[in-house]
Write a protein that binds this DNA or RNA. Sequence first.
DNA 1: CAGTGGTCTAGACCACATT
DNA 2: ATGTGGTCTAGACCACTGT
Lengths: 247, 247
Amino acid sequence: MNQISLSGLPLGAPLYQEVKRKIMESLRNGEWKPGEIVPSEKRLGERFGVSIGTVRKAVDELAAENILIRHQGRGTFVASHTHDRYVFGFFHIVGQDGHKEYPKVELQAFASIKADSDMAQRLGIRAGSKLFRLTNQLSIAGKPLIVDDIHLPERNFPHLTADVVRTRPGTLYQLYQDNFAIAVLRTEERLRACLADERLASLLDVEVGAPLLHIVRLALTFNDLAVELRHSYVNTTHHEYFAEEHQ
Amino acid sequence: MNQISLSGLPLGAPLYQEVKRKIMESLRNGEWKPGEIVPSEKRLGERFGVSIGTVRKAVDELAAENILIRHQGRGTFVASHTHDRYVFGFFHIVGQDGHKEYPKVELQAFASIKADSDMAQRLGIRAGSKLFRLTNQLSIAGKPLIVDDIHLPERNFPHLTADVVRTRPGTLYQLYQDNFAIAVLRTEERLRACLADERLASLLDVEVGAPLLHIVRLALTFNDLAVELRHSYVNTTHHEYFAEEHQ
DNA sequence: CAGTGGTCTAGACCACATT
DNA sequence: ATGTGGTCTAGACCACTGT
């Protein structure tokens, strides 16, 4: 059994891992905010007392995880959620020709509910905790394509209202970032096939019993803390979910 | 417009990219075969006339793409398809508890057909070209879970027979690698929901009209050449498709 | 023990972006 | 002109593996 230090890293872990951890700590603390520039590699090296090469290795990994973004000649920046970034990184539905087009979003319902045991387990909270539940209808060319049922622990999103959601300028993940200082860093998705019930059939303009792609997405922030649980129901008649495996 | 050299790399490309290209060329040529060790970083540096640091950067990328595998103290090896590796890298179906178990495979049909325009386009061959078509039934605990319809261009798999497929020791990708020197390097998957027709209902032991997850997988080798086109139909009643997005 | 990959350093030079 | 990240080098030392 390996010993584990207070930082969560094994004792005698590589220096660059320690540097990476410290950078993430500063990001989590908000020392450098989304969209802002971080100190140059030279300055980071001085701050942590390591060589530039070691800083580079730490930043390499953070850049590979899309937490930092490098721009040659300009500097290194904290990744920020934008519409384009969401479409590129999190939105996996493409047209039959492989073309990606982001749908128009319309909020259908906003409510406060209590977490059942499944939701609570996935979100890592107690069953019965209060959640916001949002239902979005996403359409392309006026035709409904996706229904999203989104669940957010209320304690992480104080004073959220339907109006705030409806009048947000960008994606929901931008709202989490800008209004609640929550950065979605990665997602886990579980996919199944299901049949449209009456509600989904009505929202998606399909027959009851039509086949739908059901995606359960868990969005996570620092330390793998769950931010959002989302059930998406997709009409895959003219669209599909795309995934690539670099082996 | 950037100039492109004969190697496909932009003129003035980084040295390590050139080294990476040369290593991949040797892999494609079979100079180093799957499972074999490649020369040490020191020797590669001497061979290509670059420093070890530059070799490391090239090997770093190849290791990140799972084309090479490093073992500290032992050396660097050419990735080889094994059962475990297939399950870890290409098989995305998990039980409801997240547990991955690889099913028992049974060949149901083996035929020679002609590519229709859709298959031909996806495989990058001419419509009407001859294909092998294999149908596999995959079961867990005696219960059918997946049906695979697999299409292989005949010219890449000379003398393939049902018997060879049935008596192979490992996965199909191992067969491609060991008997035909074809290395599957990455896959693209497109997912939709569909309804079971009579054939699928019978093979999967579900009702006609039951919802199924339909996965179209394209397997690719060097230079993004298509190797295999696979249609998988999954009964997601007790299993699901898992995908992770590192943002 | 010798050989391998993994880490870390220090410095030179390049390509790029901004001032 | 200055500062940034990107590349490349050379070498030291460490951790691990097999003989």
